[in-house]
Structures are given as C-alpha cells and as structure tokens.
Simulated scan of single mutants.
Amino acid sequence: MPELMLRNVFKRYDNKKKKSKVVNDFAVNDLSLVCNEGEFIGILGPSGCGKTTTLRMIAGLEEITGGEILIDDVVINHQDPKDRHIGLAFEDYALYPPMSVYDNIAFNLRAKKIDEAVIAERISKIAPLLKVEDLLQQKPISLSGGQKQRVNIARAIVREPKLLLLDEPLSHLDGKMRQVLRDEIKRLHKSINCTTIIVTHDQLEAMSLSDKIAIMKDGVLQQYGTPLDIYDNPSNEFVAGFIGEPPMNLLSVTIKKAEIGFLFVFHESPLSIPVPSRYNDVVHDGMKVRLGVRPTDVFIGSEKSLGSEIDIAVFESLGEERRLHFRVGDEFLTLITTDKIFYKPGDIIKLEVLSEKTHLFNIETGNKITATKN
C-alpha cells in the first residue's frame, strides 16, 4: 500500500496546428497532492480538465513535462508502466472476444510467465469479490456491460498492484447498474485495502466513493479535501457550483446597509435577506458579490414569517422530495423540501434563507470571501 505523491506536476502538449493560435498550453498545470496509504481518491472535474491525463501520467502512459511522481518516496517519472506495479481499468472494457472470462483475467499474469497454479489461486480469490465466479467460462460477447466492467476491474487487481487506477469505469452503464457497481467498488476497496484513484466527471460518484476528492478545472487543482469539507466549505465559485445535486444556488447580490446591519439585495427582485454578522468586517455598503446557498438551506416560511414573498416559476415533485424554482431577476433560485405540499407555477410563498449557511464569492475572481469570525 503505497503513498502516492504528485509534486508540481506539469503536462504540456505542443499544439502546432496552423489554425490554432494556442501553443504549449498546459493540460495539467502545477499539480501537487498526496494520497495516503489505503485511501480512495477521486479526481473530479468536467471534460478537458486534465483528470485522465493525470491518471495516465501516474500509470506511465503519458510523459511528464515537469515535476515528480513518487510512490513510497521513489520517483517513478522514468519507470516503464510494467515496473510501476499499478493496476489500471479503463472506461472501455477492452476484453479479448475469443477468450473466456478466465483467460481474460489471466492474460497479464501469463504474459509475465507466472505459474498456472498461482494464476488459478489468484483468480479464485478475486472472482468472488467481483461476483464473476459464475462467468469464468463464458465469452465477453455474452456479458452485460456491468459484468464486462467487473471482469475489467478483476483483470486489473489480479496483478496484486500497489496502486489501482480507475478511469471512469461506470461511464458506459445505465443509472441502476452505476449504483450497483458503485457499491461493489466501495466494498471491493475495503476488501483489498489498496490505494485507489478514480477519475470521474460525476460528482455523486466521487462523493460516495472517495475519502478525498481533487477537483480540477482547466488543468489546475481547485480544491483537495474530504467530500464533506468540499461540500460545506468550497474554495471558490466553481467548486461550489460543481459539487451538489442540485448544485448550489449562485446569485449576484449587492450589499446594502440597513438599520439592523447589512442585507443581501437581489438584482431586479424585491427579495432580500440578512447578511450574517460574521461578514460584517469584510463587506461594505454597495459591495457586489456572488452569494451561494444550498437548496436545502432555503425554506418555505409560514404566514407569520418575515421572509420575502416570491412566486414559483417551476414546481417539480420527485417522490421523496419536491423542488421549487424561483426567478430572481435573470437568475434562478432553487429550494428543496420534503413537505408533502403541492404547488403550481404562479403560487406565492414566503421565502426564508438560512443566512448562516451562506457563502460569499468575489464577483471578479470567483474566490471565496472568508469571514473574519464564525
């Protein structure tokens, strides 16, 4: 179980196409992070953020432009992939059609001239963990997508790697199968206790599986921490809007001085809410900021409530929860409730916001504005 460290890692591609004005842009830009022994790490971000490139550099499939990658304090920048003791499962299953499931799992071990008795012993241990023990004599063509991905992962871990890398392993599966296999990957990780890194663009996947999450955008690490810390304390507006389903409400507001303190005043809307006192030393009258608040921290007020009246733009009933959407100027505000009350567009309610759960972001940089006191 290694400790993996990325130290100021860069990856640059030379784009020399005639029509492109961008040359030597960085796919990964000064990335540093540490994965402790036995941790499950998620690398999360939108398409093109550099997450798969990072995984491929760790695996040795991409050359590093700058920086160092270390496993157990050993720099592996120039080691061949076969010498890094890494198991890698791609999003494409890439199983050999003429071979049985057993032979697919055994393929890499046979290439290393490992004794057949040892191979059989390893497969007998791995197959039940991935629930493929009844599929060993079948051919890949007869398997479902979920079964193929289990075989793909079994082929990676049968090598007994120091580090397991998963490149969007659930992206080709339907919703129900994604849930099933997500649970199995979590169980598998606990069983083999191997340091694991998963690359995904699905924030629910990363939140449910990972001990820590690295969120990337445009090749740059935005935040690295536990799922709870990232959810509760996003470092910038991008992270705040990327984590959470539905995502955090992010609205442009102006700070207004009032008799009771400061108010958040929404553009082109009568809606206003108190500014928590912890922000008093970092805001001023007329200041424009981006306000962030989770849909679960917005509430329907009672008739006697002091909340602002607002009409419902969209109402969604989703079984155990209902989502109410309100137009605030040119933006939308979403509320989640479990109350079994049904509304229709145009209904007017009183809206309350748990102001102590609000987040402020610099309107120009997007960085979080930190309160001086809690």
Rank of each mutant, 00 (worst) to 15 (best):
N152A: 15
R122Y: 10
S235P: 06
D14E: 15
I300Y: 01
I105D: 01
N367Q: 13
M216P: 07
D281P: 09
R290Y: 12
N362P: 08
E352H: 11
I336C: 07
G301W: 01
K288L: 06
S142M: 08
K176V: 12
N362H: 13
K125M: 15
L6H: 05
S171M: 04
V265W: 10
S124F: 11
V22W: 09
K82Q: 14
L209G: 04
E331T: 12
A258T: 14
D297C: 15
E237G: 12
S305L: 04
K373R: 15
I198Y: 11
V74Q: 13
T358E: 06
R182V: 06
N249F: 10
I349E: 01
R159V: 08
H201R: 07
P345Y: 10
D174R: 00
Y102Q: 08
Q179S: 12
I341F: 10
R150G: 00
K217F: 06
F332Y: 11
A214K: 03
A371C: 05
H201Y: 03
S100I: 00
T337M: 06
V180D: 13
D311C: 14
I157P: 00
I119L: 05
S20C: 12
E37L: 08
M248I: 15
I260M: 11
D115V: 01
I369A: 02
D25M: 13
T358D: 07
E39L: 08
T372C: 12
M287R: 09
E321P: 11
R12Q: 13
Q223M: 02
L335I: 02
F361L: 03
F342N: 14
N374F: 14
D297P: 06
Y231F: 15
K344D: 09
T338I: 09
Q137F: 09
H284L: 10
K176N: 12
I300E: 01
D211F: 11
G329A: 03
K368M: 09
Y231H: 09
L351A: 07
L136H: 03
T200H: 04
Q137G: 08
L291A: 04
A27E: 04
L163S: 03
Q222C: 01
Y343D: 05
I69N: 02
S124Y: 10
L130V: 09
F90W: 06
G319P: 08
G346Y: 03
Y224T: 08
L4P: 06
L44T: 01
M57P: 00
T296R: 14
Q79C: 12
D80F: 14
I41A: 08
I123E: 00
A127I: 08
T54Q: 05
L188A: 01
V253I: 13
E160W: 09
T337P: 12
L95A: 06
M248C: 09
H201L: 01
Q149N: 02
E352N: 14
D347T: 07
F26H: 10
A214F: 07
I341P: 10
K131S: 12
P81F: 00
V293G: 02
P274F: 02
K190A: 15
P81N: 00
D202E: 01
K131D: 11
I123V: 07
L209M: 13
E309G: 10
N104P: 00
R122K: 15
I119M: 03
V101F: 01
D232H: 10
P97V: 11
G175F: 15
Y343P: 04
A120I: 06
M248N: 04
P227Q: 06
K190R: 15
L55Q: 03
G48V: 03
D73A: 09
P234V: 00
E184R: 02
V353W: 02
V23R: 15
Q203F: 04
Y231A: 04
E205D: 01
